[in-house]
């Protein structure tokens, strides 16, 4: 639910990183924060538990400059992934314009990814939004773990499990190392902005 301010010539866009707990959503935002430190003038906001797990959300504002004369203010959020936090997860999703679904590529997390995507679909439906209509990008995270001999899901399995119906862009990534973190973000930003522009026409 982007807000367009004709007076300030500004558009605020909300992008939410969704996915199973421990998949790497917070790590994505931390990487972006580090990488663009000089462009992001404020602190990253995080509400977490003592155990360093996301309790409510992380928030990172990110200015990407002007499109058609309008300042685009991207607001990046993560949700708490743990199953028990669905009420707060749903709150963060309110008014989302675009979604990055961060899947955990570890073989042992296969079921968790599938359940989390299903949960996303349900929570979007709660706001009368369709997972097939909202801009969404998939990220298969932790591919760096292959080097340590940790069993990962083959990409075609991930695609079959998660992207069979969505048919949306997907990225192999390592949020820890930074592989494709920026590429994922750029893709969701461009898809979200085109969808807002298209809808305005």
């Amino acid at each position: 639910m982007a807000f367009i301010n004709p007076k300030k010539k500004e558009v605020q866009v909300k992008i939410v990183y969704y996915g199973p707990g421990r998949g790497g959503k917070t790590t994505n935002l931390e990487y972006i924060y580090k990488k663009f430190r000089e462009r992001i003038k404020t602190e990253m906001v995080t509400i977490k538990t003592h155990g360093d797990r996301t309790l409510f959300f992380d928030f990172l504002p990110f200015d990407i400059g002007k499109v058609n004369g309008y300042d685009i203010k991207i607001q990046l959020y993560t949700v708490p992934g743990q199953v028990k936090y669905n009420a707060t997860r749903r709150l963060v999703l309110r008014g989302a314009d675009g979604i990055v679904f961060v899947a955990d590529a570890m073989a042992v997390r296969r079921e968790k990814n599938i359940l989390s995507l299903k949960n996303l679909q349900e929570n979007l439906a709660n706001y009368k939004k369709s997972i097939f209509k909202i801009p969404i990008v998939l990220q298969y995270n932790k591919i760096d773990l292959a080097e340590q001999g940790i069993p990962l899901l083959p990409i075609n399995t991930l695609e079959e499990d998660l992207n069979d119906k969505l048919k949306t862009p997907s990225f192999k990534a390592s949020a820890l190392v930074g592989t494709n973190v920026v590429a994922t973000m750029k893709k969701i930003i461009s898809m979200t902005i085109s969808s807002i522009i298209k809808e305005l026409r």
Partner: peptide, 22 residues
């Protein structure tokens, strides 16, 4: 603000600058 967290309008007394987006 709206419930998505967007700022519709803001005003301050010019003496303080909070990080309004956060």
């Amino acid at each position: 603000i709206d419930m998505a967290g967007n700022i519709i309008a803001n005003r301050d007394n010019g003496k303080i600058k909070h990080d309004v987006y956060s």
